[in-house]
């Protein structure tokens, strides 16, 4: 079952690459200057031996991880607090609904102006963007707690804190995890975008800026490929962790296939 799925996936990827190669070589490259998939893959492999690129990758991933952690540290407690205090949530809700749809990339120029420390600026925009999915999902999770379970706990004489710790938090946890997984993707977008807009000493985006100035489209595409691979790996890791940690939740919700 699983291996058949993998095989089909591999055939899909291979087919896409072959089709891309043909389209680029036979059609695109007649008019445009664009590297074929085989060239991009070759350059991407070479990048693994380029210490400057590897260092840049580490810088970007470091910013990503730090920004995501801070967003979790702020978003989860804030979501739990607001979820537990409906009146406070009603007061904050309009502000949240206003801030949330602002495209996070649009705040990067503002962040460049306001935050003189380069890595702090980059981590800050990552935190800002990743905060919303974590916060909103935590809130949903808190709303979704079974009222009967909470009532039963209270009937047995448990205080509000005990209800929170034993019913609300475990019940909301899978939602928080989903929020974190969504945020992880957004955080990567911001980590690279901030570098593309602000430059810096090193990073995947900084590498792409230099590759662009040097007319190396192949290197831009190769760096983008690695950023994409990292995004896929991070998503898979978080998804696996979610399934392991919240097996009961998956069973309850019918284990929607993803």
């Amino acid at each position: 079952m699983r291996s058949a799925q993998l095989t089909r996936g591999a055939i899909g990827v291979a087919g896409f690459l072959i089709l891309g190669e043909l389209v680029v070589r036979l059609w695109v490259s007649r008019t445009f200057d664009f590297p074929a998939p085989s060239v991009i893959l070759y350059e991407a492999a070479l990048l693994l031996a380029d210490p400057e690129f590897l260092e840049g990758m580490l810088v970007t991933i470091g910013n990503w991880a730090l920004g995501l952690l801070v967003a979790i540290g702020v978003g989860v407690p804030l979501g739990v607090l607001l979820g537990a205090l409906p009146r406070a949530e009603q007061a904050v809700r309009p502000l949240l609904e206003f801030m949330r749809p602002i495209p996070s990339v649009a705040i990067i120029p503002l962040a460049i102006l306001l935050i003189p420390e380069d890595s702090l600026m980059k981590v800050s925009v990552i935190v800002y963007a990743s905060l919303w999915p974590i916060l909103i999902n935590t809130l949903y999770g808190m709303h979704d707690v079974d009222p009967l379970a909470k009532e039963s706990m209270r009937t047995f004489g448990f205080g509000p804190l005990a209800v929170l710790a034993r019913v609300s938090l475990p019940s909301a946890a899978p939602f928080m995890a989903t929020g974190v997984r969504i945020a992880a993707g957004i955080a990567l977008v911001l980590a690279v975008s901030a570098e593309l807009l602000a430059g810096g000493v090193n990073g995947i985006g900084v590498f792409a800026v230099a590759a662009g100035s040097g007319n190396r489209m192949d290197l831009i595409m190769a760096a983008t490929l690695w950023a994409g691979i990292f995004g896929v790996v991070a998503n898979l890791a978080l998804q696996t962790a979610e399934r392991r940690l919240f097996r009961w939740h998956w069973l309850r919700t019918g284990g929607a296939r993803t």
């Binding site: 580490l58 810088v59 470091g62 991880a65 730090l66 952690l69 801070v70 000493v201």
Partner: peptide, 16 residues
Amino acid sequence: AVGAAVALALTACGSG
């Protein structure tokens, strides 16, 4: 990553 102790994260994982 499991515990989400933010203050510690700032010092331990701080890049550069």
